[in-house]
Simulated assay, not measured.
Amino acid sequence: MGTVTVLLFASLAERAGTRRLEVPVSGGERVRDVRDRVVARYPQLAPAVPTLMYALDEVYAREDAPVAAGSTLALIPPVSGG
């Protein structure tokens, strides 16, 4: 067992009150498993889940991508602006 560093951006960081978390992982976990663990800790993030994008070790990833201990997972909400 190890940990994954989870980075929260924009509105997610504001809602959670932090930009960085350490989340425990074990073998065979996927991006969605880590995301769900973060949402369980910060339920105020749940409304953003359907629109999130993910980056695993600085490469965009799908929610079914495998996650290894020591990785960095970024949760990225949609960005708008002008």
Rank of each mutant, 00 (worst) to 15 (best):
A46P: 09
V31R: 05
P47H: 15
T72N: 08
D64F: 14
G27V: 06
L56N: 07
A55N: 10
A40K: 04
L21G: 01
V79H: 13
R32H: 14
A74T: 05
R35H: 05
R15C: 11
V38S: 03
D36T: 02
E14S: 13
T18W: 15
G28A: 09
M1R: 13
A46T: 02
A48V: 05
P77S: 12
S11N: 10
A46E: 09
M1N: 10
E14N: 09
M53Y: 11
G70I: 00
V25W: 10
Y42S: 03
P47G: 12
L8S: 04
Y54M: 02
G2R: 08
A69V: 00
R62K: 10
E22C: 01
V4F: 05
P43R: 05
L52P: 04
V79L: 15
A61D: 01
Q44P: 04
A16M: 11
Y42V: 00
G27A: 14
Q44T: 00
Y60Q: 01
A68S: 11
V79M: 15
Y54N: 00
V59G: 03
A61F: 13
L7H: 11
R20V: 00
R41A: 08
L21H: 04
P24F: 09
V31W: 10
Y42K: 01
V25Q: 03
P77Q: 11
A16T: 06
P66K: 12
A65R: 09
L21N: 02
P24H: 07
V79R: 12
L7K: 12
L21D: 01
G17H: 14
R35V: 03
T51R: 08
A74I: 05
V25D: 01
A68Y: 14
T3F: 12
G82E: 10
L12E: 02
V23I: 02
I76K: 08
A16R: 06
L45W: 07
V34N: 03
T51M: 09
P24A: 04
P50A: 04
P77L: 10
S26T: 12
A16L: 13
T5P: 03
E58S: 10
P50C: 07
E58W: 15
E29R: 11
R20C: 06
R41L: 06
E14L: 12
S11T: 03
I76C: 09
A46D: 05
R41T: 01
V49F: 07
S11L: 13
S80L: 15
L7I: 03
P66E: 11
R37M: 02
A74V: 07
T18H: 15
R15E: 12
T72V: 08
T72M: 08
T3L: 04
A69T: 00
E29I: 04
M53R: 10
L73Y: 15
V59M: 03
V34D: 03
P78E: 14
A13W: 07
E63Q: 05
V23G: 00
P66A: 13
G81W: 15
A46G: 05
A61K: 03
R19N: 06
A48W: 10
T3V: 00
R19S: 14
V79T: 13
G70F: 13
V38K: 01
R37E: 04
A69F: 12
A65M: 08
L52R: 00
T51P: 09
I76Q: 03
G17Q: 14
D36K: 07
P78G: 11
M1S: 12
L75R: 02
Y42R: 01
P47C: 13
G27Y: 14
L56R: 06
